[in-house]
Simulated assay, not measured.
Amino acid sequence: MKNIFAKIAMIAATSTAFSVAIAAGANNPAQAVDFNFNWKGDAGYSAVGSFSYDEATAPTIISESGSGATNFLQSFNVSFLDPSKNLLKTSNTVNGGVSQSKFFAFNFDTSTQTLFGRLDIGGGTGVIGEYFFDGTVGDSLQLRQDVNQKGTSTLVDQNSGFIQVSKVPEPASILGLLAFGMLSVGSTLKKK
């Protein structure tokens, strides 16, 4: 009797997972894709964040700069941390497809899923003490702090230009993996 209830529970859970995955796809025709990134400087400071764009309309190369409406980015945020992982500053540079920073510079290759070229993120409002991230991917990336609102800043940390980018798994993919795991558990229980 227990095996029948276990089978029914597995079938119900799997059906629910697939139904949710299908409904999520049907209710969201835009193909938003999310990425996380992280950078670590030579002195242990770090920058972590995420960005998203509509995968269905984005070109192979996404280049954004300045303030105002973006061409393809829907969101971009970054947090700066000290070597002890204490939060220094969080900045939502792009929100709802609008950049808040006149200094913003972003270049991303959607086919290789890599950042490249000039990168200037965070800050941008000219506040004394504000942190921002500036440089060229593959050459030198620096975490800097504004000193006087007139273009003078101090170097906080830097590295050789390495920044890691990873795609965030889609919810439907996660649900599929969960359903597969539930089926595996069910078959293991059946054997016992």
Rank of each mutant, 00 (worst) to 15 (best):
residue 68 G to R: 06
residue 127 V to H: 07
residue 44 G to K: 04
residue 50 S to W: 07
residue 136 T to Y: 02
residue 125 T to G: 07
residue 36 N to T: 10
residue 137 V to M: 05
residue 132 F to G: 01
residue 19 S to W: 01
residue 19 S to A: 15
residue 25 G to L: 11
residue 168 V to A: 09
residue 45 Y to C: 00
residue 102 K to Q: 08
residue 126 G to L: 07
residue 11 I to K: 01
residue 155 L to P: 07
residue 182 M to E: 03
residue 69 A to M: 06
residue 5 F to V: 13
residue 133 F to L: 12
residue 92 N to Q: 10
residue 124 G to F: 01
residue 30 A to E: 14
residue 167 K to M: 14
residue 90 T to N: 11
residue 164 Q to V: 05
residue 64 E to H: 06
residue 171 P to T: 13
residue 80 F to L: 02
residue 60 T to M: 05
residue 99 S to T: 06
residue 71 N to H: 08
residue 152 T to D: 15
residue 153 S to C: 03
residue 142 Q to Y: 00
residue 25 G to F: 10
residue 80 F to M: 01
residue 181 G to W: 05
residue 118 R to L: 09
residue 178 L to Q: 13
residue 10 M to I: 12
residue 26 A to K: 15
residue 26 A to D: 02
residue 74 Q to E: 14
residue 129 G to H: 08
residue 179 A to T: 09
residue 5 F to S: 11
residue 134 D to I: 07
residue 184 S to H: 02
residue 8 I to S: 05
residue 189 L to G: 02
residue 98 V to R: 03
residue 167 K to H: 07
residue 70 T to Y: 04
residue 69 A to D: 15
residue 58 A to Y: 01
residue 82 D to V: 08
residue 99 S to V: 05
residue 66 G to R: 01
residue 138 G to T: 07
residue 85 K to T: 12
residue 183 L to W: 12
residue 72 F to V: 02
residue 120 D to A: 10
residue 144 R to I: 06
residue 167 K to E: 15
residue 166 S to P: 00
residue 78 V to M: 11
residue 25 G to I: 02
residue 107 N to T: 02
residue 7 K to A: 13
residue 93 T to S: 04
residue 9 A to W: 01
residue 38 N to R: 09
residue 37 F to V: 09
residue 164 Q to E: 15
residue 83 P to V: 09
residue 184 S to L: 15
residue 130 E to T: 01
residue 56 A to T: 09
residue 10 M to N: 13
residue 48 V to L: 10
residue 71 N to M: 09
residue 50 S to M: 07
residue 181 G to H: 02
residue 107 N to S: 13
residue 180 F to M: 12
residue 161 G to L: 08
residue 114 T to A: 14
residue 115 L to W: 05
residue 122 G to Q: 04
residue 176 G to F: 14
residue 5 F to W: 12
residue 10 M to G: 11
residue 106 F to Y: 07
residue 8 I to N: 05
residue 157 D to E: 06
residue 19 S to V: 06
residue 95 N to D: 12
residue 9 A to D: 03
residue 149 Q to H: 08
residue 86 N to V: 11
residue 82 D to A: 06
residue 115 L to Y: 12
residue 28 N to P: 00
residue 69 A to V: 12
residue 89 K to E: 15
residue 14 T to Q: 03
residue 40 K to H: 05
